[in-house]
Design a protein around this nucleic acid. Structure first.
Length: 729
DNA sequence: GCATCCCATGTACCT
DNA sequence: ACAGGTACATGGGATGCG
């Protein structure tokens, strides 16, 4: 019997076996196997059916065991008698389920709609990436496994990784794997500096890449769109009849019907984007939270991971897992919808220019409410929350809230941007994403435990607390100019930083929830709605902080689809506007300067001086191109690309510019950016002037700038001259 | 034939 | 399929006007 300590890198289940990949302390990677038998529960329609069902199941060729047990069939009901059915292999699992679902004596099936690997990890109480101590026999069959608590470690497990990218030589917009060879594979360090590249003859470079993987033996393979990249590499290797060293298993992938995930067993694929935002440390957090292997945890949506955790917690409480019904179960009248739940509270902003504004943010408000008030699926009913026993949701929220705050505060003890600082930040960021979604998911229709009263109760308390905070602020002589869910915008003549901090302290003391000064604005503009200036817009504002930085939310600049030229323009416009000591200066001198800058910029556009690449609008295609009902610009651009032979799928980014926005043929309005370079293309000057004026109105609308009253858009050319005269005088 | 209004559609942002 | 709510741009039909 051998013993080893290390970290669980990855797990998968196949047939009646679980495969565990262990990264040992000495750096070796060990493949272990363990027995796994799938199982599920049956709740009979009537207790008298139990014996008949049990007798029938015992004779089923794929059933290896049937036991009568007592379980909770929901979070709040009493225990009931259910049948626990063990199946011989994952291969026959669905078939047994189908057979049972058809039986008239069966009321419902439980523990059926998670992955086998999740059930395996639940049974072992084994979050992947955990530090473990294992003993195993000479055939590497697991005999004993013990989780070692390393929960407060800042450093992630010593998993290694490589970042790579491939270049394909192709005359087409989308390369054809059967025709187009890989011309180069580059390897990069964690700051994306190139450290190595393989080029030349394709067969040779693939072989070198394979040797490189063999020698470095990385645990994670990281690339932008990693699944597609790896698949391309493998398909090319298959064409060259080259067996690549991507997997740590001896798979002959030349014979595989489906490449992923079989061709990379033993190594974890990770998208570059995820790696850059939360790192291996953050992925570790997600994986341990959800008890889902790291490769899946890194790409699953938050709701699915929260579901995973909830199911795990439920199992620990002797609850069996109902199937996710994923459709609306409650009928509500319109009146109930309107008056029952109004979501978070938004106090309409006092629009316009403000000076000396403090923004106070509650720290993790919704998680704190769930924990403090014990709001949970089983504790909340309309008008009442039970507090006799810690709820299901509060417990799992508390553990991970504490964990996030631990790393968030520990981070400050390390020098900024040091390795430890970064690990803390990655961990807390990953947990933050989960925590925000726990609140949202509690009211989600797809949540199998969902109870509308729970979500509404969280919102009710949040509103109450925000109102209380507003009242405290007003009592202290502050004016509340805007509030949204968990943040409060307040101002007071002559208030300094400490005054805002004192207010935060008082609110914190009264409400029992942590709140702190998050931003201190020298100038702040809260916006009206673009579509209807008679309404104030929530979540749209911009300003200059006391440290001199610009800060903004919701405006064009924040949006990824906004052309870089517009972004630069809008930034510059704000800089000009706020280059002042007092608000009067803004009104007296800076407005005119800003107006002038708008006019100059419009002139530049009209003279055709803007490089095309700065005018590119970048939108993502959220569905297959043929599913669109309207011909939006990005859809038309996508259709053009498809005509030119590019393959597009939902999730792809479409870059285009306006070339003739008003053309009656939608296909003449825009051109995809990819075909601009070799054409002497002109951009639609009027359209881009319009876009600039939109941005200008966002920033300067409050200061009297309005294209209509100034005549823009009617006689643009002449009017610019007039405006110049007007401003000049 | 056009300007204008209004709604549906779709994307991205915010918390 | 799998956090919800909000703001905005766009297309395209309906409507009004000369």
């Amino acid at each position: 019997m051998k013993q080893t300590r290390g970290w669980l890198l990855d797990v998968n289940v196949a047939g009646s076996e679980a495969v565990l990949w262990l990264k040992a302390e000495d750096g070796d990677v060990i493949r272990l196997t363990d027995k796994y038998r799938p199982s599920f529960y049956i709740k009979p329609k009537d207790a008298s059916e139990i014996e008949r069902l049990a007798a029938m199941l015992i004779n089923h060729p794929n059933v290896v065991g049937v036991k009568c047990e007592s379980k909770y069939a929901s979070l709040s009901s009493k225990k009931t008698r259910v049948l626990h059915v063990h199946v011989d292999s994952t291969k026959k699992y669905r078939r047994v389920l189908r057979d049972m679902a058809e039986d008239s004596g069966v009321e419902a099936l439980y523990n059926v709609d998670l992955l086998h690997v999740q059930w395996y990890l639940f049974r072992k109480d084994l979050p992947p990436t955990s530090k473990i101590h294992v003993s195993y026999n000479e055939r590497n069959e697991l005999a004993h496994l013990e989780v070692i608590d390393d929960g407060l470690e800042v450093q992630p497990p010593p998993f290694t990784s490589i970042i790579f990218d491939i270049e394909i030589s192709s005359g087409k917009l989308t390369p054809d794997v059967n025709m187009d060879p890989i011309s180069k594979i580059g390897i990069f360090d964690e700051h994306l500096n190139p450290i190595k590249s393989f080029g030349g003859d394709e067969k040779n470079l693939l072989h070198e890449f394979s040797e490189y993987i063999r020698s470095l033996n990385p645990d994670f393979l990281i690339s932008e769109g990693v699944d597609e990249k790896i698949t391309y590499v493998l398909e090319r290797a298959r064409i060259m009849e080259l067996n690549l060293e991507v997997s740590r298993e001896n798979v002959d992938f030349l014979k595989l019907k489906k490449l992923l995930p079989y061709a990379h067993r033993g190594r974890v694929l990770l998208d570059l984007e995820t790696f850059l935002s939360i790192g291996i440390a953050g992925v570790t957090e997600l994986s341990r939270f959800s008890l889902v292997p790291p490769g899946l945890a890194a790409k699953w949506p938050a709701g699915r991971m929260i579901d995973g955790r909830q199911c795990y917690e439920a199992i620990k409480r002797d609850v069996i897992i109902p199937q996710s019904r994923a459709f609306f179960r409650f009928v509500k009248t319109a009146k109930e919808v309107i008056f029952g739940d109004r979501g978070g509270l938004i106090l309409s902003p006092k629009t316009g220019l403000h000076e000396n504004v403090g923004v106070l943010d509650f720290e993790s408000m919704f998680p704190h409410i769930i924990v403090k008030y014990n709001v949970s699926y089983e504790t909340a009913s309309p008008n009442r929350v039970r507090t006799d026993k810690e709820g299901f949701l509060p417990q799992l929220t508390r553990n991970h809230l504490e964990r996030r705050l631990y790393f968030k505060h520990l981070k400050k003890k390390f020098p900024e941007n040091s390795q430890e600082w970064l690990w803390c930040d990655q961990r807390q960021k990953a947990l933050k994403g989960i925590l925000v979604c726990i609140y949202g998911y509690s009211g989600c229709f797809a949540n199998r435990f969902n109870n509308v009263a729970c979500y509404e109760e969280i919102n009710r308390i949040a509103r109450e607390i925000l109102v209380e905070a507003m009242n405290i602020a007003m009592r202290e002589g502050f004016e509340v100019i805007y509030a949204d869910s968990d943040s409060l915008f307040v101002k007071k003549e002559g208030a300094c930083r400490e005054d805002f901090e004192d207010l935060a302290g008082k609110i914190s003391e009264k409400t029992g929830l942590p709140i702190a000064l998050d931003k201190h604005f020298k100038f702040l503009v809260l916006l009206k709605q673009e579509s209807d200036p008679s309404l104030d817009a929530a979540r749209r504002y911009f300003g200059k902080l006391t440290n001199g930085e610009l800060f903004y939310r919701g405006i064009e600049l924040r949006r990824h689809d906004c052309p870089t030229f517009i972004k630069r323009f809008e930034t510059r416009l704000m800089e000009i506007l706020f280059d002042a000591e007092k608000a009067e200066e803004i009104w007296k001198t800076q407005c005119k300067k800003a107006f002038n800058y708008v006019v100059e910029t419009c002139d530049l556009i009209r003279m055709g001086k803007i490089p095309l690449n700065e005018l590119v609008i970048s939108k993502s295609l959220r569905r297959p191109v043929n599913n669109y009902r309207s011909l939006f610009p990005h859809v038309v651009a996508a259709k053009q690309l498809i005509q030119m032979g590019k393959q597009l799928k939902s999730g792809d980014t479409i870059d285009f510019i306006y070339v003739n926005a008003e053309h009656r043929n939608p296909f003449r309005r825009v051109t995809p950016a990819e075909v601009l370079c070799d054409r002497n293309q002109r951009y639609d000057r009027d359209k881009y002037v319009e876009i600039i004026l939109d941005a200008a109105e966002t920033i300067l609308g409050n200061f009297g700038f309005n294209r209509r009253s100034l005549g823009f858009g009617m006689k643009p050319r002449n009017f610019i001259e007039e405006l110049k005269l007007e401003i000049g005088s």
